[in-house]
Nucleic acid binder design. Structure first.
Lengths: 124, 124
DNA sequence: GGTTACCTTTACGTTAACGTAAAGCTCGGT
DNA sequence: ACCGAGCTTTACGTTAACGTAAAGGTAACC
């Protein structure tokens, strides 16, 4: 459970380059421990990489992903902060729902295309 | 039904700049008619703009969107083409399904965050 | 102890998707 | 005849997300 990973370990697993992982770190999306110079990624870091890549796959910029990640590290603050957080969460949710709707729309269009092919060309 | 639109008409409606619409045309995603120099967008063009923006919102590049649009204009070809088209459609569908799964995963993570806030801070 | 395999930082290069002038046509109104 | 509104092309600038050397540290293996 307390497994650790090198940068190429994670790069291979997620099919990205080490450069990308360092870049995500530069942008504040990761902060792995160090053994001297070397980066040591924990399981928690690994999960975060997965989150980053999921975010990218649905069209989020690194800045947006960072904002989402920052929601994780609750500032342990006052009630006022919680309201702000809830508002941010709400906006993100709405955005994601909209994207799902867009995806459904595109899936429907693909179906329409396929139907045209099948109608024009039933035996293929 | 045979309504037409100027470039700023569409730009305003979809909240993009005229420059973007011209850029989509440069990339082969649109080809509006001309009245002399002026671009005249048809209803069909308008629908296409909507498709382009949906594609963008879910993280597709203009090149990918172009590929999808090209599926619309079936080359009226032989059976072999239909097989190829079906394969492409299938891959796109799989990609979109994966994105939906990614979105659901992120929504679940937002829920987890919200639960932590509520647990830590029930009265806010 | 030298080579090989990974790791590091620094820094300039690249691509996509536009932004942003600059300079000019065109048409309806005064 | 002139003006402003809206259109055009051409072309250089910008930002994000890395790619790609270059130059060097370290640890294990022969």
């Amino acid at each position: 459970m307390n497994q650790t990973f090198s940068i190429t370990d994670l790069a291979r697993e997620f099919d990205v380059t080490p450069r990308s992982l360092r870049h995500y770190e530069d942008e504040g999306l990761l902060s792995p421990q160090r053994a001297g110079q070397q980066r040591i990624y924990s399981n928690r870091d690994r999960v975060r990489v997965a989150l980053i890549l999921r975010g990218k796959s649905v069209g989020f910029s690194l800045a947006e992903i960072r904002e989402i990640i920052d929601l994780y590290d609750l500032p342990q603050g006052e009630e006022l902060q919680a309201q702000v957080l809830r508002a941010k969460l709400s906006r993100r949710r709405a955005q994601l729902q909209q994207q799902k709707a867009d995806i459904d729309h595109m899936l429907a269009e693909l179906d329409a295309i396929e139907n045209r092919i099948t109608t024009d060309n039933p035996r293929s």
